[in-house]
Design a protein around this nucleic acid. Structure first.
Length: 300
RNA sequence: GGUACCAUAGCUCAGUUGGUAGAGCAACGGACUGAAAAUCCGUGUGUCCCUGGUUCAAAUCCAGGUGGUACCA
């Protein structure tokens, strides 16, 4: 039997992954799995440039607008749910398209991540507070005493990772390193990675322009609607947090716009750094549809 | 055309009595397995407009040139 293929489209934000994914899904007469950690939330449509029903053009999309912004979600959860959908879909299709820029979500599906215990979020909250008051060094020191293996593996100046180590220990009584296997899981399907990008200058221009378009489309109003949930993880997102600062009178509107553009560019750059590491990714410009199809070895 | 002022990083500019230069913004590189659009770490990237002069030594002083700005004609 012929191998099933997960055609995985990666690349920086604003490069044009969405339209490529839909063209490919149409070509293969299949569906799209979104690997975007923000488009998965209901209502964050303008600010995340979520694929619209018009753009979808009848192609079924999974994991777009399916969660409430108050929901907690993570890469491991995504791995589980996405694999289930992928498995079911492969009963009907030979090819599936996965498209999105969330680096760790993509890796979770392609390589898997270790299962870890659920953490007590009140413990996390407490640790965050402590970090803000005492600084990260105090927490790093504690982590060092509890779990030297993990301490050596991470950047002790990075509060998110230090806190994560501590919260797992405080929740389970076991060091986080005992849960970390760091092994790659094999998948029962082929994964083929297609990168979509543009020359840096063009990419940045498109990103800046897209922010202007988002504003015209009502980003400010959308952000205002979610202001009450500004502490939710789902809203710790470029485009919203800057506007929240504006709503809080911390910065001017113009400054917020400037920062949204800059932070989007930084995000794109960070994505490129991550995606570049995977040598199996074959890179294309968003308009190279026929080249992409040729690469996927099909008749044009 | 005349006078004055200016010319330094991608941009805006700082640079003391001469000792080959540094801030902000922007940019660039990297890490990252249960927050990942998160969270961190790192990097000055320069023909100091050009040519000549003075000097041990010029971004700095002098002359000329070029370009720009303002005002006067």
């Amino acid at each position: 039997m012929k191998n099933k293929r997960l055609i995985t489209i990666v690349g920086p934000t604003g490069a044009g992954k969405t339209s490529v994914s839909i063209a490919l899904a149409k070509h293969f007469n299949t569906e799209v799995i979104s690997s975007d950690s923000r488009q998965i939330y209901k209502g964050l449509t303008i600010g995340t440039a979520a694929v619209t029903p018009q753009e979808q053009d009848g192609i079924p999309h999974h994991f777009v607008g399916t969660l409430e912004v108050t929901d907690n979600f993570n890469a491991f959860e995504f791995e589980k749910q996405a694999l289930k959908v992928i498995e079911e879909s492969f009963e009907h299709y030979d090819n599936l398209v996965m498209c999105g820029g969330s680096m760790m979500y993509i890796d979770a599906v392609c390589k898997g991540i270790d299962e870890m215990p659920d953490v007590d979020l009140s413990i996390r909250k407490q640790l965050i507070k402590q970090q803000e008051e005492e600084g990260v060094d105090a927490l790093s020191q504690r982590l060092y005493e509890i779990d030297k293996t993990y301490y050596d593996a991470i950047d002790p100046k990075n509060p998110a990772r230090v806190i994560h180590g501590l919260e797992v220990y405080l929740t389970t009584g076991k060091p986080i390193s005992s849960f970390r296997q760091n092994t790659s899981k094999e998948r029962p399907f082929d994964i083929i990675k297609v990168g979509i990008t543009l020359p840096r200058e063009q990419l940045y221009e498109r990103i800046n322009l897209r922010v202007d378009k988002m504003l015209e489309a009502g980003l400010e109003e959308e952000a205002r609607r979610f202001y009450p949930c500004r502490e939710c993880n789902s809203l710790k997102t470029v485009g919203y947090r800057e506007l929240f600062d504006y709503f809080d009178d911390k910065i001017t509107f113009e400054e917020a716009i400037r920062l949204i553009k800059r932070n989007s560019r930084h995000y794109a750059k960070k994505q490129l750094t991550w995606f570049r590491k995977d040598e199996k990714t074959r890179w294309f410009a968003p308009d190279q549809e026929s080249e992409i199809l040729a690469y996927l070895k099909v008749e044009i």
